[in-house]
Amino acid sequence: MRKRRLKSLFKKIRRKMHYWDWMIAGPYIILSCLGIVMVYSASAGIQMQNGQRPLSYLIRQLIYVLMGLVVFILFSSVRLDKLRNPGFLRWFFRILLVLLIVVRVHGAAINGAHGWLHLGFFNIQPAEVCKLFLILYLANQFAHVSERGLSYKSAQAWKPTILLGVLLLLIIIQPDIGGFTINATIAIVIVLASGIPLSISLSVLGLGVFMLAFGVPTMAHVFVGHIHNYQAARFVAFIDPFQHARGIGSQLVNSYYAISNGGFHGAGLGNSIQKMGYLPEPNTDFIMSIIAEELGLIGVTIILVLLATIILHTVRLGVKTHSMYEALVCYGVGAFISVETLFNIGGVLGLLPITGVTFPFISYGGSSMLVLCASIGLVENISIRRKREQIRKNLDQVYE
């Protein structure tokens, strides 16, 4: 019985793969493969210096990419109404809430933030999972209000506010400034795209801009500064990193050196100097500095073009679809990838404070990879549905 179900599932997945949108799947696969290569290049040298296996990060990243591909295929094949099921969303919220509480109380502290739960081989970061939940939940909630013709002043429309506040509070007290900002941005984009009245939209937008521009830095200095000095110091160091070149500013200073060494053509794959102990975390937060040093401006540009292809195609799909739910999912995923990219690049270039945000599909990490793959799997799912509907319409017109 199980074999029959598995065979039926694989047949269904194979059929859907014929309709894959390669403007999404193609860049995603290329970026993931490039990420495997660059994680190995960025980590092998320092691993050997420390007497550890040079292939350890390569093997783990390869496993994460393969797991991500499975997640991508599953989310591109699942029926969207199952993801909109209230029971599923309730359980998703409960599990996420427990994870966020547990990670704050018992999570491993890295750079002053309690953001990771160690589960043997795999470390889970609940703030990453929250991004996927907010896309699914808020898209369903506002689409439900629109589809039922309910008032936006009703309890149904404002119910997400309390839930969102609880989740964001649990993320900021870890403290995870980057995770808080990205999750808040996803929520703001979905709310503004949901068609709520202009007065409410402007209020939400104003609050969002205030929080991003003033609230987060203030909380970091006032609240976080007393408890987690490392996080607060990051906001101070980025203003003049060379003043703190031997301390908290060393990451940004060495990032500048890496970018300068790379120039236009790059020093060549594997030839980075800064990854050899000068630049901390070269395979995660600062992997784009290593790419800039080894592959140069050309390599960085190719990566950004591939990411821009996914983002623009996702937004375009959201504009073209006639389903409010599908449109909001697309806008949420587009915002997720865009802000994560901007925060990582901004941190590497010193245009934004370093917040520990990874670069999509390239940086080492399991939680980030799986959540990103699930998110673009949703977009692929929507694209497949649009294609199949268009084919049915064309066939109906032929037979009429």
Results as ranks from 00 to 15, higher is better:
V191F: 08
H18A: 04
V319W: 10
L66M: 12
T321M: 01
I190A: 02
F242V: 06
S338K: 01
G299A: 00
I24V: 14
T185K: 06
T341I: 01
V105P: 05
N344F: 15
P217Y: 11
R316Y: 11
N111E: 13
L307G: 07
G51P: 05
R15D: 14
D285K: 04
M48P: 02
I227A: 12
Q52M: 12
L83A: 02
M288S: 14
G377F: 08
N229L: 05
R386N: 12
V209C: 14
K387N: 08
I124V: 15
Y19A: 02
L349E: 02
I384H: 04
I248L: 01
V305M: 12
G225P: 08
T341E: 02
V329Q: 09
Y364W: 13
P54N: 10
T185N: 04
Y28Q: 01
G87C: 07
K387E: 07
A113D: 09
A292I: 00
K393C: 07
L62V: 15
Q49V: 10
Y137F: 15
V71H: 07
F75V: 00
L202F: 15
A308Q: 13
V253W: 06
S272Q: 09
I190G: 05
Q174E: 11
V305S: 09
K12V: 00
G45C: 04
F75H: 02
V216E: 06
R148E: 11
M211F: 10
I30N: 01
N50E: 07
S32W: 02
S32R: 03
S56R: 15
A233W: 06
Q231F: 10
G112N: 14
S194W: 12
E326W: 02
M369Y: 11
L6G: 05
I182P: 04
N85G: 04
L6P: 05
V398P: 02
L119H: 13
G263T: 00
P280C: 13
L134G: 09
V191N: 01
F238M: 14
V222M: 06
M38T: 01
I302S: 00
Q125K: 12
L6V: 13
D240K: 09
